[in-house]
Each structure stands twice: as C-alpha cells, then as structure tokens.
Design a protein around this nucleic acid. Structure first.
Lengths: 207, 207
DNA sequence: TCTCAAAATGAATGGCAATTCATTCAATGA
DNA sequence: TCATTGAATGAATTGCCATTCATTTTGAGA
C-alpha cells in the first residue's frame, strides 16, 4: 500500500469516527481500529489529533469548491446559477453525510482556533454566492440594492440549516431537489402572493 | 447569598468560560475561579460538567422564546411579524454574545447527545416562524405553495449564519437593523428586479 | 456567647487517553 | 540467503482534570 493510500485511509476513518462521536469524544485508538492500523501509525502521518481535523477540512473542502465552480461555469443565467448552487450543495451533503457532519459541527466548534486558515477556505465558498449576485446585478436581473455580503451568508445559512437537519435527524421529509428549488425560490421570488416572476408576467396585462 | 443566586452565578460564569474556550476545553476550575467559588461548590449545584451545559440551554432559551412570543403577539401583519422576528433574533444575539456563542457552537456540537431534549426547545423556536407563515397563507398574503417546514429552517438558518459571523468574527460590517431588514426582504420580496411588491405593480401595464 | 447543621472548601484520587519509542516486521537488492 | 532500512506496532508513559470527600467555615437560633 502506497503512502498516499494510508494517509487517505486514516483520513476516511477519521471522518467516520468524528462524525460518529464528535471530535473530542473520538479516541485515536478508535480511528486506528477503523483504519486497520496501529495507534502509533497515525502519528507517522499526522502530527496530532487536531491535525487530522484540519487535514479533513483542507483536503475535502478544496475538492468541493473545485467541483461546484466547474459545474457552475457551464451556466450563464445568474438565477439559474443560484438554483444550481443550492442543488449541488444539498446533493454534496447527501452524498457525504459523515464529512458534512464533521464540517458542520466539529469544524464550527473549533472555528476560533483555526480562524485564519478556515476563514480563507470558507470565505472562498461563500464568495461563489456573492459573485453570482454581483453578476446578476450587473445584468440588471437582480436588484441593485441587494447587499451581496449579507446575501451570501443568508443563502448559505438557509442551505446549511436545511442540511444540518438532515444530517442530524437522519431523515428527510422533502427530497433534495424539492428543498433546493424551494429555498432558491424563496430568495429569488420571495414568498408574497402575486409577485413570483414578474420579469415575464410584466408582459401580461393583469388589470 | 441565596442559593438561587449562586446557581445563577455559576451559570453565568460557565457561559463566559464556555464561550471563551469551548465546552471541552473549559476546566471546572476555571469556571470556579470566574464565579469566585471553590471547585467543589459547583458540584453542590450541578451534577457534572455536562449538566451545566444543559442547564444553560434549558434556562436561557426558555426566557428567549417567551420574550419573542410576547413581542410578536402585539403585531398583526405576518410580513411585519417576520421582519420583527429577524430583528429580535439578531438583537438578542447582540445583547448576549457569550450565550449566543455557546448555543450556536457548543450545543450544536452535542446535539446528538441531547437530541430529544434539545429538539423540543429548538423546535418550539423554529415553529414560531412556521406559525407566522401559516397565518400569512390563511390570510392570502403568502403564497399557498410555500412549505412552512422548509421555510422555517431556511429563515432561521439565514439569521443564524449572519449572527454566527458576528459572534465569531467580533465585528459587524452592517448594523443589526440593516441585516434584519435585508434578510427579511430577501424572503418576502425576493431579489429579482421588478417584483418587489407586485400587488401594486401588477396594476401597471409594463409592456 | 454557644451549638449545630448546612454550605463551602480545595487537596487528593482515580481514570482516562494522547503521545512516545523500543522493538518487530517487510521489502529490496546484493 | 543475508543485510539494511524504512514502516508499523502497541505497550508503557505521562499529564491532565473531573469528581470526591474529609475538613473548615458560616450563620441562624437559643
């Protein structure tokens, strides 16, 4: 087995164990067992327990950002982009439950310790959203008075809370695509009666 | 000093210390010091460290729910209610930074352990939102196809993420009321151009 | 002032688990 | 087959800290 493989094996085992017990309640010995490796071996690949947590974040989030950016590049319309972002975010959570749980719960826990580092990666993720908003504003599709800095957090927060519920409760009342469509619609159209899509309905006389 | 006072004193000290270090990195001895009390005294008022965390949640969230419900009772219009909810939520976070941090980060951390209990209190909080939505739907102010179960999470999530940013970064680029108005507007009106309040604009021919 | 029960104290205990490191294993090539 | 070296092992070490409890302090009533 190559070195990279063992590194990966320990990382995957850690994601599983951290998701199961939480970081502080996880034992190195349990990770070792899960990875079929001796306790000491872990220290050949990572400096300490905390280092594993950082590695999870660093290595896994990078992949996700890359994938989302790539998929969004194929779409032109900003409204569509936002909807697709929601779908991708929720799909990725569903496909990687354990990772999602670690990122949501554990990394958040230690945010204050890894502030600098974490912020950079996380900010990059959030900025995908604000970039879309700005593009929409330039194209006059989104209102000019929207503050992208608030929007990105609100949008991310809405998706994040939805997926947190799934991750923690283990059950989904609504499908991923239903939730994604619904949430993006809240933001795009609002929830008030009568105003769903005026860019088209404005062509219709409603007297 | 009355017994209730000391209980309270220890609780307040714990909120401070947990917010500062995180639950797992907080020492009973540090809480004791912060509360001007001996280590052992804490065990006269709480069964163990974890018990303190639960008490914080139980006792403090109850107050908050009561206060919000009371303030909302004075408002009739559902749209206004939603906006006020956002403002209250963010104000409460601002007024109780340490508590907010503990609830956001630490309690979330241990959600899986206190699932049953926590869910009941937390669900009650979320349901304030879905109740408003249902009221709005009955009054034909909100679209009938909105799913309140998704909306409540999305709305809460948006506010929560905004306040998490404040709590962790320690600085606010936008004022509380700006953020509250902006976020409630996203959900009420959407972000698209032309559709802010079509209940009026639909009377206008825009061809 | 004295008594006594309740409250408070904080040093000592005990258990736990991250990390270390002396030892063993495995693979390579001579 | 043997020697060498890097990888892997897991038992032992070490330090930490929640919790306990024997002792002291406090304060209310007599």
């Amino acid at each position: 087995m190559k070195i990279a493989d063992k590194h990966q094996k320990i990382l995957q085992a850690s994601i599983k164990v951290f998701a199961r017990n939480g970081f502080f309640n996880s034992r190195i010995s349990e990770i070792a067992k899960e990875a079929n490796v001796a306790d000491g071996t872990i220290y050949l690949y990572f400096n300490n327990k905390y280092d594993i947590l950082i590695a999870i974040f660093e290595e896994e989030i990078g992949k996700i950002i890359a994938r989302i950016k790539q998929e969004l590049a194929e779409i032109k319309n900003p409204a569509e982009k936002l909807e697709r972002f929601a779908l991708l975010h929720l799909q990725l959570v569903e496909e990687n439950r354990d990772l999602a749980e670690v990122i949501q719960v554990e990394i958040r826990q230690s945010t204050k310790f890894m502030k600098d580092y974490r912020n950079r990666k996380f900010a990059e993720y959030l900025n995908i959203i604000s970039q879309i908003v700005r593009q929409g504003q330039e194209e006059k599709i989104f209102r000019a008075d929207i503050l992208p800095g608030i929007f990105k957090r609100a949008y991310f927060g809405a998706l994040d809370e939805m997926s947190r519920f799934w991750v923690l409760s283990g059950k989904k009342k609504y499908s991923v695509s239903t939730a994604a469509k619904e949430i993006s619609a809240f933001f795009l159209q609002g929830i008030r009666v009568q105003g769903p899509d005026t860019s088209h309905s404005s062509m219709t006389v409603e007297t």
